[in-house]
Design a protein around this nucleic acid. Structure first.
Lengths: 142, 142
DNA sequence: TTTATTTCTGATAATTTTATCAGAAATAAG
DNA sequence: CTTATTTCTGATAAAATTATCAGAAATAAA
């Protein structure tokens, strides 16, 4: 459903969010270890997210990645930053011109699924998810 | 959401279904033209589908691809044949062990979406979709 | 001001997916 | 039986994604 980059990206942001709540600023080594992802690739992804302002970063000693204190970040924003919004918008059969007026054969069927996915991603906040993580109710690796 | 191969595969099968209803047996050249896909790549995909018994094929003059007369083929079977069932089953964050007992942070949220997608694909038949296509209510290219 | 630490940047490599090609195997039709 | 047509098979090429690496830029701390 998502690219590997996006999977690593979401996992990384959730870990960063959890650590931010504890006033920590994990670096790439810690992040990659925590979410069990390849370190240099994860670095690329975090840099992309930081460049887009999705997460914040600080260079130098004791630096790392972190989130704004009252971040309202949603899953949808992370996905759109890494994979683009074709998963929310694009035609399931890859037709360049697919719309209600000129629908592909599965347009109606997939519209519901897609709309459900979109709404869910827009309504799910990172804070909300990292809270469960902190409580040990959910897991980021293995 | 789906791979290019799967998109081409679904489009091809829908065209084959439509033509089968008219007692025709389109060959690869006709299929690729009708669904606007690269011919050799489409051939590979149709061969894979034929090998799996999803569609039928006949070699030689006047040969091509076709469907059983009373085929109950669903979208789910095509997708599973080409992309596998990870879209229906796998963890959205790519964790190898993700379950209700050991859930990833988005397990519950995505379970609903995934379940909706699965049900829809299992309940949508190719015949049903090709019927609309035949009536000109839906389109396979551009 | 120097040093250690860390993100950031650009180049490169490996793998997977997408796409192409040539020729063998099968088969219907003449 | 021969020929033309078509699927089928295996090899190969191109592009995209995934992954790695080396060094520059920034910055906190000594």
């Amino acid at each position: 459903m998502f690219s590997k980059a996006c999977e690593y990206g979401i996992r990384s942001v959730l870990f960063i969010a959890e650590q931010s709540q504890l006033d920590k600023r994990p670096n790439i080594v810690e992040i990659a270890k925590a979410v069990d992802s390849p370190e240099p690739f994860t670095a690329k992804i975090c840099q992309q997210l930081a460049r887009s302002g999705i997460i914040l970063s600080r260079k130098g000693p004791n630096g790392g990645f972190y989130l704004e204190k009252d971040s309202k970040l949603t899953l949808a924003e992370i996905v759109a930053c890494i994979d683009g919004d074709s998963i929310f918008k694009g035609c399931s059969l890859g037709l360049p011109q697919c719309s209600a007026a000129h629908p592909c054969p599965v347009h109606d069927q997939f519209n519901d699924v897609r709309e459900g996915l979109k709404k869910m991603c827009e309504n799910t906040t990172v804070t909300q998810l990292s809270e469960k993580l902190r409580k040990g109710e959910t897991f980021l690796k293995i």
